[in-house]
C-alpha cells in the first residue's frame, strides 16, 4: 500500500466519523466516506469530485433528495421543516458499516498490486457501488458514474496494470 493512500484513508476515515456522528449514525457508511472525501484537502480526488459538480454541499443535497424520494416511493411525503433533524450520536462511531466496507474493498480491488493504490482509488470504490443510497444519490445529482470512473482512471498512474 502506498504511504499516500494509507495517509489519505486515515484522514478520510477521521472526517467520515465526524460526518457519521453528526448524522446520528452508529457506523461509518459509504455516504459518510463520500462526504468526507469532498471535504478533504487532498487535491486529485477533490478535483475529480468537483469536475462532476460534487462539492460537499451538492452531495449533502443529493443525499437529502434521495431520502425524500425513497420515502415518497413508500407514500410518505416529508416536509424538511417539520421533520426533526437527526440527533447527533453521543459517541463518535469507530465501526465501519457494511457499505463503508464495500467502498474500501472495491477501491482496493481496483489494483493488481497494493503498492499502486492512490487516494483516487477510494473514490473508485464509491463509484463501484451498484445499489443503495450513494449510487441513487449520485444519479439524482446527475452524475454519470461511468464517465467519472473513466476520468478517475485517467488520473491514475500506470493505468495499463489496473484491473
Amino acid at each position: 500500500m502506498s504511504q499516500e493512500f494509507g495517509t489519505y484513508v486515515k484522514a478520510v476515515m477521521e472526517r467520515a466519523a465526524d460526518e457519521a456522528q453528526r448524522a446520528g449514525a452508529a457506523a461509518i457508511e459509504a455516504e459518510h466516506l463520500l462526504l468526507a472525501m469532498a471535504a478533504e484537502p487532498e487535491s486529485t480526488t477533490r478535483r475529480l469530485l468537483d469536475s462532476a459538480g460534487l462539492d460537499h454541499r451538492a452531495i449533502r443535497d443529493a443525499l437529502d433528495e434521495e431520502f425524500r424520494r425513497s420515502l415518497s416511493a413508500a407514500g410518505v411525503i416529508v416536509d424538511d421543516r417539520e421533520l426533526p433533524p437527526p440527533s447527533r450520536s453521543p459517541r463518535r462511531p469507530s465501526r465501519i458499516g457494511a457499505s463503508g466496507k464495500l467502498v474500501l474493498e472495491r477501491g482496493v480491488a481496483a489494483v493488481a498490486h497494493k503498492k499502486d493504490l492512490r487516494p483516487a482509488h477510494l473514490l473508485l470504490g464509491v463509484l463501484r457501488l451498484n445499489a443503495g443510497t450513494v449510487p441513487r444519490a449520485l444519479a439524482l445529482a446527475g452524475v454519470d458514474r461511468n464517465d467519472l470512473t473513466a476520468r478517475v482512471r485517467r488520473s491514475l498512474p500506470g493505468e495499463a496494470g489496473q484491473r
Binding site: 446520528g24 431520502f67 425513497s70 420515502l71 413508500a74 443503495g132
Partner: peptide
C-alpha cells in the same frame, strides 16, 4: 426503489423515535 424505501423508512423511524 422498494428496497430504498425500506432504508429511508427505518431512518425516518429512528429520527422520529429520537
Amino acid at each position: 426503489e422498494a428496497l430504498a424505501s425500506v432504508v429511508a423508512l427505518r431512518r425516518l423511524a429512528d429520527r422520529l423515535e429520537d
